[in-house]
Design a protein around this nucleic acid. Structure first.
Lengths: 144, 144
DNA sequence: TATTATTTTGAGATAGCTTATCAATTTCAA
DNA sequence: TTGAAATTGATAAGCTATCTCAAAATAATA
């Protein structure tokens, strides 16, 4: 179990070391649980982990998930009023095609688009950390 | 002044008509002020408009900007904990480069990306109506 | 134009999510 | 093992956005 997420654990430890932070039981627990998710909210994480440790505080979940973001293990995404923390290692990055008729969501990847994004960023002096691309429209079924 | 934003005014009136809503002094004022912005938060709008009408309520600003979204005049975008309302008519397509350091926003257009988006959509049987592309990272100044 | 049903407004209360506070506890280097 | 420094947990506080409701404004109708 611990060896399963060795890569992320190493990334976390490296980040902790560089910033004079400490490895705690909570951080290990949360990392282990988080890596089994694709994307999850802090609140959902809180309820899920309450079974394993009823005294784990919500603030600690938030602090730790934000820590994971800093360490490059997670990525925060804002949906409406909520923040979802994506497991970066789980999949390569994917964008979304969203049908405004039936709300179906199709995930896709396109290397050429990613490359062009980098190009745009460079031209403007930016270094991209993350991005978000959503295409809204009608799927074949809803168009009729 | 009123004729300047005739197109958006027409779009608003059409939406109001279809939904049994009414055209009010506040909606006209807010539309006029909003169309002079590229993108703005409700809070900023509130302070700005306080000069013209000190009694205009914040709730009305929110309600009206959301109304504009429904009418297709504005588009809401979540950045951190805040929501920014984009003026859709300001430019045809404008995507965003967003600095996570200083919150600077650079707009850009890239026809090649747009073309590839269409391609992806077509391949998945979708017809795109709108899209949203945001690149998050650090601008040259914040990188140091 | 006057009437009237319906919608909208303004001000503050409320809700939902996230962060700040701080004493007690834990970590880890010496 | 010790002790400085970081972390935790519980809860208060902060922020943004929405809801409530009496009063006001709008627009359809007479």
């Amino acid at each position: 179990m611990a060896t399963k997420h060795a890569k992320e654990m190493a990334a976390l430890k490296e980040h902790l070391g560089k910033h004079q932070l400490k490895l705690t039981r909570q951080r290990e627990m949360i990392l282990s649980a988080f890596l089994q998710q694709e994307h999850i909210t802090a609140e959902a994480m809180y309820h899920q982990m309450a079974k394993a440790d009823p005294h784990l505080g919500l603030a600690t979940i938030y602090r730790t998930l934000n820590l994971f973001c800093d360490a490059g293990i997670a990525q925060a995404r804002h949906f409406g009023s909520q923040t979802k923390y994506d497991n970066v290692s789980h999949k390569g990055h994917h964008d979304h095609l969203i049908c405004t008729g039936c709300e179906k969501i199709v995930e896709f990847e396109n290397e050429e688009i990613e490359r062009l994004q980098e190009e745009v960023a460079t031209r403007n002096g930016f270094t991209i950390k993350t991005h978000r691309l959503e295409l809204y429209g009608l799927c074949s079924r809803c168009r009729h």
